[in-house]
Computed example of a mutant assay.
Amino acid sequence: MEVKHMLRMTIDGNRLIREHSFFEEFSEKFGFPPEFCRDRESWVDCMSYLDDAEMGMSSVHCKPGGAVILEIVNASLLKHRSPTQYLTLLECAATVNYRRMESGDPPLLILSFTV
C-alpha cells in the first residue's frame, strides 16, 4: 500500500494524562466541531475523516488517500503515569484504521512514540 501524502501532528503525552485533558488536547489540536462530545466514540468519528474536509469533523486534514502521523512526545511518561489513557489512544487509533479498512479505505492514523 502506498501512502500518497502524510501530515505530521505532534501531541505532548504529558497533556493526555487525564481523560478530560486527553479529549481537550485532541479537540484543540485538530479543531473538532463544537458538538464533539469528548468521549471515545466522538474521537473516533472525528479522526476517521481527517482526509475528508467536506465532512466538517476537524479543521486539520491530509489529502484523500493520505495518512496522519500522530507523533506522541513524552509517550513513556503517558504510559507510566496514565496507562488507561495510553490504551485509549492505542485502541481509538486502531478503531479508526479498522473502520476505514472495513469500508475499503486505507488506514489513516500512524502512531509514532518519542520518549
Rank of each mutant, 00 (worst) to 15 (best):
R15H: 14
A67Y: 02
I11K: 01
F113A: 00
M47L: 12
A53C: 01
G13F: 08
S82G: 10
V60C: 07
V115C: 06
D105Y: 12
M6A: 10
W43M: 09
D45Y: 14
F32A: 03
T10N: 04
D105P: 02
K4S: 10
R8H: 09
R18K: 14
E24T: 14
L87D: 14
H5C: 09
W43I: 03
V3I: 11
P33Q: 08
T88H: 07
K29G: 02
I11F: 09
S103H: 05
G13A: 07
L16E: 00
V60A: 10
T114P: 00
I110Y: 10
G65E: 04
W43H: 12
A93K: 00
M6W: 02
M47I: 07
I110T: 08
F26A: 03
L70A: 02
S42G: 15
F23A: 05
R15E: 14
P34K: 11
V96Q: 04
E71M: 12
A67S: 10
E91R: 15
A94T: 11
E28D: 15
E19C: 12
E2C: 05
C46S: 06
T114R: 10
G104P: 09
E28S: 13
R40P: 00
S103K: 13
F26P: 02
E28P: 03
M101Y: 13
